[in-house]
């Protein structure tokens, strides 16, 4: 699953504008909604009370938390950049809701790269989607290590 992805380190030199990074596909169920609400101390009924969601707030079902969409999208990014990559900037907008049980995908594309302070900075366009519908568009900047630049950190043994 995810741990192998995190064990492969990607470097600044490996990426070019236009590259897609691996999309994460998740179908959030009601257990996951419950645990995410618990972990974020979120009591909003629209995430667990179907009757409230339908009759008071006018949704068809309980809805996936916006912050969970954001966290899944960030997970797609941090899985890809590996343990020596760093999330520097992260910006998302809540555009549409998702219901429990819907298949969602989270991924993005490299839009630009430039050298920073001992690292390479890579800009991404990112999005959470349901089919072709963009639920959460955003942008991110990540710092990736340079090949042959240990900059004080131990080298990866697996490479």
């Amino acid at each position: 699953m995810v741990p192998e992805r995190a064990s492969v380190q990607i470097f600044y030199e490996d990426v070019e504008p236009g590259d897609l990074f691996p999309a994460l596909t998740v179908t959030v169920d009601e257990r996951q909604l419950f645990f995410f609400s618990a972990a974020t101390y979120n009591g909003h009924r629209i995430h667990y009370d179907k009757d409230w969601a339908r009759t008071v707030e006018g949704y068809d079902d309980v809805i996936v938390q916006g912050p969970l969409q954001a966290a899944l999208l960030a997970r797609a990014v941090t899985d890809w950049i590996g343990g020596r990559g760093r999330l520097v900037e992260y910006a998302v907008q809540n555009r549409d809701i998702a219901f429990a049980g819907e298949e969602l995908s989270f991924g993005g594309v490299v839009t630009a790269k430039r050298l920073g302070d001992n690292t390479g900075l890579v800009d991404l366009d990112i999005a959470g989607r349901r089919g072709d519908t963009v639920l959460m568009p955003g942008t991110a900047t990540v710092a990736l290590p340079l090949r042959g630049e240990p900059h004080g950190e131990p080298q990866d043994e697996e490479l």
């Binding site: 996951q32 899985d79 950190e153």
Partner: peptide, 30 residues
Amino acid sequence: AAAVGDHNPLWFDTEYARARGYRDIICPPL
């Protein structure tokens, strides 16, 4: 992280995090 399904070893595995320049496991940014 478990509720997100995010098992990144930087959040869980001290040895892994230290080998990547951190002094210990780190808090997920979000």
